[in-house]
Nucleic acid binder design. Structure first.
Length: 218
DNA sequence: ACCCAGGTGGCCC
DNA sequence: GGGCCACATGGG
């Protein structure tokens, strides 16, 4: 057993099977609605507390906006007012609309989108303005069941804590996880969920004072 | 009144 | 390729 397999076992033993311990993603989203919520949440949760994302999702649900199709017809202006609680709402409304537009106009549904090959699909997602590596991979892994490992601040921090790697960029760290684990999307889903649960369990902040946030006043 | 939250794009060098 | 900043709300 290598270091990554041992790490998974350790977290699994400590926290058990990830369920809905802090959000939907922990329990392997399965239904169409759950998977579409992953797509929406992937944008909304960028640099934002999940609690605030829930408030935004609640606003959408109250307006019966739960599908990508309905979001598409809503337009980014109205979308912005509904997702305010998630912060960065003008940018996120545009990002989310870009993403939904990409999916609806080119594929129509997540099932169709899923048929595209992993590598090609990832490149296309990354071209959508507002979708970076983590957002793209979260969608690929949790909404499309593609075996790709999601790297986030918690994963980076955990790796550093364990002194596994010094300097790392996203791609390198992702490859490292993937090369040392069974190529299994369920394992990746659970592992990433556990890393987040583990990260939230600690008091220490993710990255201190956020760069650039200091003069965020109106 | 601070400090923080599962990122990303744009700019600069 | 890396460093810095803007984007913004709600909760501790």
């Amino acid at each position: 057993m290598n270091i990554f397999e041992r790490l998974y076992k350790e977290l699994r033993k400590k926290y058990g099977k990830p369920k809905e311990q802090w959000n939907l993603w922990c329990k392997r989203p399965k239904t169409k609605q759950e998977k579409e919520e992953v797509v929406i949440g992937a944008i909304l949760t960028q640099r934002t507390n999940w609690k605030n994302v829930e408030l935004a999702l609640e606003n959408l649900k109250n307006k019966k906006i739960v599908s990508l199709e309905s979001l598409y017809h809503l337009g980014s202006k109205k979308l912005a007012s509904l997702i305010k609680p998630a912060g960065f709402y003008k940018a996120k409304a545009q990002y989310l609309f870009n993403l939904v537009k990409f999916i609806v106009e080119n594929y129509g549904s997540l099932e169709k989108l899923r048929k595209v090959g992993l590598k090609e699909l990832r490149e296309k997602l990354l071209k959508v303005k507002g979708v970076g590596p983590e957002t793209a991979d979260s969608i690929l892994l949790y909404a499309l069941d593609k075996p790709i490992f999601v790297i986030d601040e918690y994963a980076k921090r955990l790796i550093k804590e364990r002194n596994l790697i010094e300097k790392t960029n996203y791609h390198f760290l992702q490859k490292l996880f993937e090369e040392n684990l069974r190529k299994d999307f369920r394992l990746y889903q659970d592992f990433h969920a556990l890393i987040v649960i583990n990260g939230k369990n600690k008091k220490r902040p993710l990255r201190g004072v956020a760069k650039g946030d200091s003069k965020n006043k109106k």
